[in-house]
Every structure is written in C-alpha cells, then in structure tokens.
Design a protein around this nucleic acid. Structure first.
Lengths: 166, 166
DNA sequence: CCGGGAATGTCAACAAGACTGACGTAGTTT
DNA sequence: AAACTACGTCAGTCTTGTTGACATTCCCGG
C-alpha cells in the first residue's frame, strides 16, 4: 500500500520532508554528475569552467562569444580567461564573423573535440546508467521536473536550443 | 548498428542527443535551484557554503563536525572557515559531546533557525512549484533518476538520512 | 560621412570557496 | 605511556567568479 506521499493521480501531498529530500537529492546528484569530468580535468590546467565552454561550443559550433556569455551566465572577463587558455592550447578556434566582423564564431579544433568527447563520454555514461536503472517513465519525469525548476530565462535558453519538443 | 537504442526490457532510446539534453537540463536546473537562496545570501556575509552547512545542521541537529565534513565532502579547513563565522554571528552553537568530549555537536540557534527557514522556504517554494507543474509521476521519476546518478558513497549518505540506519 | 552604440578584448584588483601541508591540543583507547 | 582521534589553525595556492575602466573594431541610422 503506502500511497502515502502522492495521491496516485490527482493531488500532490508535498510535505516539507518530501521537499527536503528532493533538495538533498539535487545536491548529491549534482556532485555525482560533475564528478567524472572533474576527475578527467584534474591535473590538466582546466576546470569545470573549461568543460562548460567546450560543451556549448561543441554543441553549437559557430556560436559567438556573447551567445556563450548568455548561456553560461558569467561575465565576459571570467569567460575570456577561460577562452584564452583554450585558444592558446589549440582546443578552440575563433573565426571572424562573415556578416559582422566584430563577432568571433567559436569552433572546436580536432584536439578540442577529442577532449570534449572524453569529457562527455564519461558524463553520458553516468547519465545512461542512471536512465537505464530508472526506466523510461522516470526519465520523462526527471526531465519534466528539471525543466520546471529552471528560471524562465534559463528555460527559454534551454528550450530554444532543443530541436525536438515545443 | 543502431543498437544503441533499446534497453533490456524497456524501450529506452538513449541517443547521445537525448543524453546531452539531460546533461544540459541538470546544468540549467541546478542554476535555478540555487538562485533563490543565493539571492537571499548576497549582501549578507554568507554564501552557498554557509547555506549547505546550515541546511544539514538543521536537518540533523547534534551532528558532529566530522559528520558534516563527510556530508559536504570538503576539507576541514574549508568547513572551519564557514563554521567560525556562523559561531561568531550566533547562528550555530557547538555543544561538547557527552560520551566523547572531543566532539562538538552542532545545533542551530533561534537566529540560525530563522535564516534556515528563510533559505529553505525559498528553495522549497521553487521545488514545490516544479513538482506541481510536473505531476506526481514525474516527481517519482525525478527522484529515481537523481538517486541513480549519485556516487554510491553519496547515495549511501543520502539514503542513510532517509531511513535511519547506522 | 559621422557619431552612437554594440561586440569584443584586456588590465587590475578583489573575494569566495575550494585545496594542500604542517602543526597543536585535548581527549580516548590500547 | 603511547598511539590514535576529533578538532582547530596558520599559511599559502588555485579556480572561478566579481567590478570598474578603457581601447578597438565595426555596424547602422541620421
């Protein structure tokens, strides 16, 4: 039995206790989520900030610095420090914009793409294992709750970049 | 090829694209998740680290410094800086352990509990809104995936706090 | 064509929060 | 008495974020 927490369909009984568990689940899960890439990056001169930049450049090749700035939600000074090392080490290259020559469109080099693959392989492996363990319905719910938890602005960014759903 | 799709029993179509969306959902959702408490804390002399300490002390009153150390996964030097300011400002108090006098059992003061309430009210409100928007099944799936994503050690910590076990 | 503003880079200074390493002190266990 | 444990602390480093100020290059509207 134990239909305790949530009514099977209609109403949600949201005790503070349940919410607290959700909060702690986010905290612990996020640690796990970042653990593998962090392990790979440690020892290199890079950190989580580099990973994030590389991720989004890989995902949207040719995006501009200010696109990336908006996605990451940091200051240009902060991002620039990261990008500079990525340029210097030949992981990322910038091509001057065709229509607007002020823009620098960012692309991964082969070397950069290789690192990206290493990082996201690790992260995807964990995500895949979690998805498999939890099952399809859980995955759907997972995504739905996460989307609902984003700030409206961030959600717009996220959805705007998605190809499939509305 | 194209065998990357289905899991053993279910129809788990796990394309890299889908996994990438899950990864980004975690990234954006975590930003939203921490945004409200961060806003409250900004301007005070506190940060996210203080929030985390306060959260777990509230959750398990009387826990020791090393308990907290394990939960947070940081070094004692790092935690100590945080705890010191919380002691000085009278938000947390330490009581010498009864059986083992080396231990300092941590408790929130009234003032500390008030801040905890302010912080977690904000965070719970967001979590509640997300849960409501997503529905009960989604909530179940959300928690299931997050648990599966934790490191085994972290999951033990997390579960250990749910059901009281040694 | 000129000037405002946008996109970008860069210098400098600073802060939070993590880390390592070393050392000290009180209390507990063997 | 020695060894180990729980905790605190000093000192230094690193990453990643912040503000503020200023320069350059370029687009576009008047």
């Amino acid at each position: 039995m134990a239909e305790n927490a949530s009514g099977s369909e209609g109403l949600l009984f949201l005790t503070d206790e349940q919410l607290r568990k959700g909060i702690e689940a986010m905290f612990f899960a996020y640690r796990g989520f970042t653990a593998d890439p962090d392990r790979i990056l440690e020892g290199m001169d890079y950190g989580r900030a580099h990973h994030r930049a590389i991720h989004f450049i890989n995902r949207s090749p040719g995006l501009t610095v200010s696109n990336l700035l908006t996605l990451l939600g940091v200051t240009k000074q902060s991002l620039n420090r990261v990008l500079r090392t990525l340029f210097e080490d030949g992981l990322v290259e910038a091509r001057v914009g065709k229509t607007d020559k002020r823009e620098r469109r960012l692309h991964l080099t082969e070397k950069g793409a290789a690192l990206e693959r290493a990082l996201s392989d690790a992260q995807r492996a964990r995500m895949r294992a979690a998805y498999r363990a939890a099952g399809p319905q859980a995955v759907q719910g997972f995504r739905t709750v996460l989307e609902a938890m984003m700030d409206p602005e961030l959600r717009r960014q996220y959805l705007g970049l998605r190809e499939d759903a509305p």
